[in-house]
Amino acid sequence: MNANNFPIRILHVFGIMNCGGAETFIMNVYRNIDREKVQFDFIVHSQDEGYYDDEIKSLGGVKYVVPKFKGTNLIDYKKSWKFFFDTHSEYRIIHSHIRSTASIFLKIAKRQGLKTIIHSHSTSSGSGFSAYVKDLLQLPLRDIADYRFACSTEAGKWLFRKRDFNIVKNGINSEEYIYNMKSREYVREKLGLDGKFVIGHIGRFNEPKNHFFIVDIFKTIHEMDPKSALLLVGEGDLRLEVENRINELNLQSNVIFTGIRSDIPELLHAMDVFLFPSLYEGLGIVVIEAQAAGLPCVVSDTVPEEVAITDLVDFFSLRKSEKEWSEQIMKYIGYGKRLDTSEKIKKSGYEINEQVTFLEKFYLDNMVVKN
Rank of each mutant, 00 (worst) to 15 (best):
I199L: 15
R92Q: 15
V368W: 04
I117R: 01
L136V: 11
E351S: 13
D365Q: 14
I214Y: 06
Y51D: 04
S300P: 08
K370V: 03
L364K: 10
R92G: 09
D54F: 12
Q47T: 14
S342W: 01
I309L: 12
E343R: 13
D365G: 00
R245T: 13
R148C: 10
E266D: 15
Y52W: 13
K57A: 15
R148V: 01
T24L: 09
R245I: 00
Q138P: 01
R92E: 12
K227L: 09
I246G: 05
L279P: 00
Q252G: 01
K70T: 15
L230I: 04
K57N: 09
Y147H: 15
T101Y: 02
K82E: 15
V313F: 06
V287Q: 11
M181N: 13
F362Q: 10
I260G: 00
D301W: 01
S183M: 03
S300E: 09
L339T: 11
A22I: 02
T24P: 07
L11E: 01
H201K: 01
F40R: 02
K37G: 02
G15E: 15
N353T: 12
M181I: 15
N254R: 12
K196N: 07
L106K: 01
Q252E: 14
I33M: 05
S46H: 10
A270E: 03
D301S: 14
K115M: 14
L231A: 10
K162F: 01
L318W: 11
Y132Q: 09
P208A: 13
E360K: 06
E175R: 14
V65A: 03
E175N: 13
E281A: 06
K107V: 04
S80W: 02
N28A: 07
